[in-house]
Design a protein around this nucleic acid. Structure first.
Lengths: 185, 185
DNA sequence: GTCTATACCGAGATAGAC
DNA sequence: GTCTATCTCGGTATAGAC
């Protein structure tokens, strides 16, 4: 899927890769869509766990930011999104999990951000999450195309804001900046 | 391609859709990749023209922001990105055009943003473009999945910043805010 | 330039033996 | 559970007549 795209994932190739017969693939997964959904679900569950971990850390913003840059292979994500464009079952599966990811983020951030001196009226937790996620995903996609115009500057800018809110990366406990950070995310 | 994904685009179906014979498709496009590249190029050229237009308007920030929300069908974009993951020729085609889009944006913004009172050290034009593009693309993708948590808030936030720099949407000439806008993008 | 005809392959999926 | 065998379809691509 990563190397050749979802269209290259066939029952025959899965069988061969597993050292097994084609019929057996259909014994476990009635259709190829079922197989894709099982694959997605397994990955999503793992990611949910990892997100829960970093969100419960002393520096959830740093945790989330770093998580995107490490974990998520943008290629496989793009494949699933493309798949979802024309397979309803997969689309709703992705939508369900995305809601859970977002809900978990917003729940934590709504509690944490005011302590950082961020006015929730001006900087709603949900917006912070949408913007942060959008930007980091976009950076990864561009990376895959070897596009990097403005990337270093953007990373520096975002990480500067995170640091002003949570203190330097890895310095657990020093967050809750003494001088209320400028409201500039 | 939009309805069923790139994998559903076959020489046979293209031929049928065009009311023409399969052989003729291969007469014009030696391989299906050539056809995809031609398709992408045509769309990209049109988009480049539209971008040039809005960038030369009196409110280039508003123009760019609105352009993403109107024009770009995220579905077809996703399909091309997925395609690019495993077809080198398409990948480099997309990369080339992306560089041209970004270069055009940065060129204009580097001239324009200082006049808005934005310090280029703190807010490099390239970063503004990366962030704005990333966020608006992300919003569109989520929309396709009927996810809208935080969307309204984020749009309000971004549009508020644009308005503080360029004045209200559509009010050409009133930009260059009289009171230097707070440096908060 | 457009068509007919065809070669060849791999896809999804099922039946039925073991 | 696992395999063999097979059906049916649609994919890419080409040769060659018109």
């Amino acid at each position: 899927m990563i190397e050749e795209g979802y269209a290259a994932v066939s029952s025959r190739r899965v069988a061969t890769g597993a050292g097994v017969n084609v019929g057996l693939v259909y014994y476990y997964f009635a259709t190829m869509d079922d197989l894709f959904i099982a694959l997605f679900r397994r990955g999503a569950e793992r990611s949910l766990e990892r997100q829960a971990e970093v969100l419960s850390s002393p520096q959830p913003l740093w945790g989330l930011w770093d998580l995107t840059h490490q974990q998520s292979d943008p290629a496989v994500t793009m494949e699933f999104i493309a798949l979802a464009n024309h397979r309803k079952a997969i689309k709703s599966e992705i939508a369900d999990y995305s809601r859970r990811f977002r809900a978990m983020q917003v729940e934590v951030m709504t509690r944490v951000l005011p302590g950082y001196g961020l006015d929730p009226e001006q900087w709603p937790a949900s917006s912070i999450m949408v913007m942060m996620t959008g930007i980091s995903r976009f950076l990864l996609i561009e990376d895959a195309f070897e596009l990097d115009t403005g990337h270093a500057e953007t990373v520096a800018l975002i990480e500067g804001r995170i640091a002003s809110l949570e203190g330097p990366r890895g310095s657990a406990g020093t967050h809750g900046a003494t001088e209320p950070a400028p409201l500039t995310f």
